[in-house]
């Protein structure tokens, strides 16, 4: 993991030049009162300090994944005596299927959910943000209401529904809800973003004779890249970490996803294999971390780069 960390550092530095090009010069030249390096230096100091503090648990996780299980809780702190790779090799192979299978399953679920959310939520959001239709306010209220009820009382009726459709132990119960825009969080998020896009832009397109599908696809969607990226990143992470619904709907071990596999190292009634658990936690963090590093490029590709109105 230390290797990865360093590599990650490298990538992000390269990426910076690309992402921050649009507004390179202004911030320093405007304020000549102090030497030009003081402000950035202080900022770096502050950011590095807080960042390190915030990362302590993460670093501890990485370090502990390299310790033998019985040493993990005997020596606290970040100083590492041994460099135990066996947690990684054990963790990868000790469950009934290699860990790569769980990673693959999680990836499939995640991809399905991302595509589903991007398509269906952006469509619904366009309707709520831009179209006039009957009962709009009530539908909006209903949409928000659907995320106000705790999942624990919905999950049993929902399970019965999917079970009667014969969909238990498939990925359908995990992906279909996203394809059908049940994640009101993202609909609302996109509504807010679309409402931030100047209306003159779609009016211009309308005057050019574009219908709603084309305005949506050719004007709105490109302008809401940050919101789409946010949705994709969040969907990725939430689905990647989601435990409860995956626990209920996936029964065969060959269908298990990462969160289920990680819990397979635990047993509250006897002992937990912390070493392999930490090692595989680190492994499962790498994809989301990389996705984020890569994804932020889209997150910050806002309309400011095109100049707005």
């Amino acid at each position: 993991m230390t290797d990865t960390q360093i590599r990650v550092l490298g990538t992000s530095d390269n990426e910076r030049t690309a992402s921050d090009l649009p507004t390179p010069r202004r911030s320093r030249s405007r304020y000549p009162r102090r030497p030009s390096w003081v402000r950035p230096f202080l900022k770096h100091l502050l950011l590095l300090g807080t960042g390190l503090l915030m990362l302590y648990p993460v670093l501890w996780l990485v370090v502990s994944s390299l310790r033998p299980t019985d040493e993990i809780f005997r020596n606290p702190g970040l100083v590492i005596g041994s460099f135990e790779i066996s947690n990684y090799t054990d963790g990868w192979t000790t469950l009934s299927h290699p860990f790569s299978m769980f990673l693959l399953n999680s990836t499939l679920v995640v991809l399905g959910c991302i595509v589903g959310n991007l398509v269906s939520c952006s469509m619904a959001a366009y309707a709520f943000a831009r179209l006039k239709f009957s009962g709009k306010k009530w539908w909006f209220v209903i949409m928000l209401t659907t995320i106000m009820l705790p999942i624990h009382v919905i999950i049993v009726p929902q399970y019965i529904l999917f079970s009667q459709l014969g969909w238990v132990n498939t990925f359908i119960p995990l992906i279909l809800p996203k394809v059908l825009a049940t994640d009101a969080f993202f609909v609302f998020l996109m509504v807010q973003f679309i409402r931030g896009i100047p209306r003159e832009l779609d009016e211009a397109a309308r005057l050019d004779g574009c219908g709603h599908p084309r305005i949506f696809a050719q004007v709105i969607l490109p302008l809401m890249t940050p919101a789409l990226a946010t949705t994709a990143i969040f969907t990725f992470i939430w689905t990647w970490n989601d435990f409860f619904s995956q626990l209920l709907y996936l029964t065969k071990p060959e269908m298990y996803t990462v969160p289920l596999a990680l819990r397979a190292f635990m047993d509250a009634t006897s002992s937990t294999s912390w070493g392999p658990l930490f090692a595989m936690s680190v492994v499962s963090l790498i994809p989301i971390f990389l996705i984020f590093l890569f994804g932020q490029r889209f997150l910050i590709a806002g309309i400011s780069t095109t100049g707005g109105k």
Partner: peptide
């Protein structure tokens, strides 16, 4: 904007959110 290494910092500050609901969080 306006600082070197931004995407690195962003990732650093976002990293905890990735771990927030992990099973390991109790121990961490």
């Amino acid at each position: 904007r306006g600082l070197r290494g931004l995407s690195f910092y962003r990732s650093v500050f976002y990293l905890p959110s990735l771990l927030g609901s992990s099973v390991a969080i109790a121990v961490l």
